[in-house]
């Protein structure tokens, strides 16, 4: 016999109101835009080749913020935990997340490969922080600059290096210290030249300037460049609304960006800490690559 709970759950949504949905064309348009936005950055990770190490398959084809879709099963992983965590489906299939994986080295010159040692260590942030080995599934600030382009506030110029034509390597890492504590998302890119890496920084900077204020319905986001020139060859410290700080640093042909997120402590974003991490990032890059 079905009990009350079962009956209620069975009938759940039977009276869902009619919704006005985006048209299929609009949805496809968004997908196309996402593809363009990510082509400027992290999609280099999508060309990671399969690497077999000690029987562990590394076969990535996804962008870092999306779950690894099932290769053979129709049932992808449902994460019950607000994420930053390794996808169970990825574990089940022997996949390693981009966070923990090697940089996207396909076609990249040797001297622009991003080794793990070029990334910040957890101890660089605090004794309590740990490297989160899971994949980062959240949005990044490019979500906002992409929206800004959608709204016509910015034409995306100067353009980022076209990754379909130039080589780019990529690695990312999440450093976290538990729910509610500041966590750091670091994404590092290697290019074939300092000029190309500089073009990437110029592109990002233009985004912050053109998208200084983005309003869309109840949404309001602001970028403010608060400091420059504190680390590496080029650096920017950017405040994204009240509780996120962005640090962008270029060292030679290597470009890294840090997103410092203060989820439960709006207003606590620490600019001095952010700058310090930018300098530490430079130290790590210089110690592990030929960028300096």
């Amino acid at each position: 016999m079905r009990d009350d709970i079962s009956q209620q759950l069975d009938g759940f949504g039977a009276d869902m109101p009619a919704m006005i949905w985006a048209s299929p064309e609009e949805i496809r348009g968004r997908g196309e835009r996402r593809r363009r936005v990510h082509a400027a950055g992290m999609t280099a990770a999508a060309v990671v080749a399969a690497v077999l190490v000690a029987g562990t398959a590394l076969a990535l084809g996804t962008r870092p913020e999306d779950p690894a879709p099932p290769a053979t099963t129709p049932s992808p992983t449902v994460s019950a935990v607000p994420r930053i965590s390794t996808s169970p489906s990825a574990r089940a299939q022997g996949l390693t997340s981009p966070t923990a994986g090697p940089s996207a080295t396909v076609g990249a010159p040797f001297d622009t490969v991003i080794p793990a040692g070029a990334m910040l260590r957890a101890s660089d942030v605090s004794p309590a922080h740990r490297v989160d080995e899971g994949e980062y599934l959240g949005e990044t600030y490019q979500y906002v600059t992409g929206l800004c382009q959608d709204k016509g506030q910015w034409d995306g110029k100067p353009s980022a290096p076209d990754t379909s034509r130039v080589r780019e390597s990529f690695r990312q890492r999440v450093l976290a210290a538990g729910q509610g504590r500041m966590h750091v998302l670091q994404r590092t890119y290697g290019y074939g030249s300092a000029q190309l890496a500089g073009a990437r920084v110029a592109h990002e900077r233009a985004g912050f300037e053109h998208c200084a204020v983005v309003d869309h319905r109840e949404t309001h986001a602001e970028f403010e460049i608060v400091r420059t020139g504190f680390a590496g060859d080029e650096s920017l410290l950017v405040r994204l609304s009240p509780d996120v700080l962005l640090v962008l640093v270029r060292v030679g042909a290597v470009y890294t960006n840090l997103s410092l997120m203060f989820p439960d402590t709006p207003g606590a974003a620490d600019e001095a800490l952010a700058e310090d991490l930018g300098r530490k990032a430079v130290t790590r890059i210089c110690g592990a690559t030929t960028a300096c």
Partner: peptide, 14 residues
């Protein structure tokens, strides 16, 4: 459920 989205729920309407 993503952490970012929770903390950045100002973006959800985008």
């Amino acid at each position: 459920v993503s952490r970012w989205r929770r903390t950045r729920n100002m973006f959800t309407a985008h």
